[in-house]
């Protein structure tokens, strides 16, 4: 997670990571996700009403369809979420876990704002 007010990129995780650019910030409408493709990997990127950025794997684990970016963004008990557009389970934007099914989750990606560009940290 990162906020959209400009601040230096800090990558605290130890593993080496490359940052890839997805799109300019303006391309992200609040509470409407977009999908980005990096090689084989599909990432769903969201900007909340408050301006935070989040990135999850784009594949909905229930249906196998790569559509999480097209879900409705909201919150559950204050935790920011996206609801899968296929069968409507909610996933936490913070840690990717499914809030409606135990043991199900989607990957979470580090995301940062760099010179007005939204970037995703890939391994």
């Amino acid at each position: 997670m990162t906020t959209t007010d400009e601040r230096p990129a800090t990558d605290t995780t130890p593993t080496a990571r490359r940052w890839e650019t997805a799109c300019p910030l303006e391309r992200l409408q609040p509470e409407r996700g977009v999908a980005a493709l990096f090689g084989e990997e599909q990432v769903a990127i969201f900007r909340t009403h408050g301006g935070e950025l989040y990135a999850l794997g784009n594949v909905d684990p229930r249906s196998g369809a790569a559509v999480l970016s097209r879900g409705i963004v909201g919150d559950r008990g204050g935790e920011p979420t996206v609801a899968s557009p296929v069968y409507k389970e909610s996933f936490s934007l913070v840690d990717g876990r499914c809030l409606d099914a135990r043991g199900v989750s989607v990957p979470v990606y580090p995301v940062r704002l760099h010179d007005g560009l939204v970037q995703i940290g890939l391994r």
Binding site: S63, A65, V67, V86
Partner: peptide, 21 residues
């Protein structure tokens, strides 16, 4: 405007989403 972000799956793209996206 902001209405776009409220729409349900199918209204999102004015088409019905199928099982494979």
């Amino acid at each position: 405007g902001e209405q776009a972000a409220l729409q349900d799956t199918n209204d999102h793209f004015l088409a019905n989403m199928q099982r494979n996206g």
